[in-house]
């Protein structure tokens, strides 16, 4: 097996990672994953004008209530799951390098204050989206480093 820094100087991983175009998002959470992926792969340079690779992302998120209080029909906690199926295509020969599925879960506390619950879910969606972006970026990096 081979062990080396992902961004070692001879490797072209960094250059390839900077030349990716991500499919546009249709939901807020999908946009959060996309924006974070753009930063993680470009280091702040933003979206490249022309891209050697296309990543198609389908992001979905769901909330499920936990710790159901039987005396008052409410829940004391919840979890937010953000998942994505992705496929990485090299534009030069439109070859699919890798496709897969990743998901991330963020935990939340609930109270009877519905506004607080709503904002807590928004924050948990952002957290889970950022973590999901880390996992997808790692998969992209391994695919492009081959």
């Amino acid at each position: 097996c081979q062990v080396r820094p992902l961004y070692d100087s001879e490797g072209a991983t960094a250059a390839r990672l900077g030349s990716i175009s991500f499919s546009e998002a249709s939901t807020r959470v999908g946009q959060e994953v996309r924006n974070r992926l753009i930063f993680l792969t470009s280091g702040g340079a933003g979206e490249p004008a022309t891209a050697d690779y296309d990543v198609d992302l389908k992001v979905s998120s769901s909330v499920s209530k936990l710790l159901l209080i039987d005396s008052s029909d409410t829940a004391r906690a919840a979890k937010v799951t953000v998942s994505a199926t992705y496929s990485i295509t090299r534009n030069s020969d439109s070859q699919i390098l890798k496709s897969g599925r990743r998901s991330a879960v963020a935990l939340v506390d609930y109270s009877i204050q519905e506004f607080a619950n709503t904002r807590a879910v928004l924050d948990a969606e952002d957290r889970a989206a950022k973590e999901l972006a880390e996992l997808v970026r790692a998969d992209i990096a391994t695919a492009l480093s081959r």
Binding site: C1, Q2, V3, R4, P5, L6, A138, A141, T142, S145
Partner: peptide
């Protein structure tokens, strides 16, 4: 400091 370990 990401380290890549790749096997077959």
């Amino acid at each position: 400091y990401p380290i890549l370990i790749s096997t077959a």
